[in-house]
Amino acid sequence: MAQSTPFPSQTDVDEVSKSFAFTTRLDDLVAWGRKNSLWPLPYGTACCGIELMSVMGPKYDLARFGAEVVRFSPRQADLLLVAGTITEKMGPILVHIYEQMLEPKYVIAMGACASSGGFYRSYHVMQGIDRVIPVDVFVPGCPPTPEAVLDGVISLQKMIGDHKPRPWRDNWVNPYEQKQ
């Protein structure tokens, strides 16, 4: 009774738990849940938005991949699906919406315009949304076929499942606040 074992410090617990496979497995479990229940926020601005309706609608049916709960409130969504051209006028609003989303959050740029400005090399079109927010998956096409969008969602699911987040999202700062 005289000698009781000291309570292990936090570092010890961390050290000990690392020797088990416990943490990783919980991560896997969480990732499995996350990737199969993406809640998209369809940020449809242009033609791609119309094609996105087909992705959600009958025949292609994004629900098969667990992403049918469309949320129009950024606070309830974890996948920002930017479908269509983003103009300079729209830029601050897109960033505002992205900031309102809770972690973990993912971004898919659907179509040529969202990815790079597309064939609108013009005075009012942002040349790709990756200039203002970090993008996880780019889907090419003008507009992409629904199959291509589904492929993009599957790639994102794989990324979540493999625990390989895009490195650039950690260093992201709001470009508009930076400039002021």
Partner: peptide, 22 residues
């Protein structure tokens, strides 16, 4: 935005960033 883009002397690809929502 500064200038009037459909004038012939405005270059088609000169973008001007918009930093705040209206």
């Amino acid at each position: 935005f500064v200038g009037h883009p459909l004038r012939k002397d405005y270059p088609a690809d000169r973008q001007q960033p918009c930093t705040e929502a209206m």
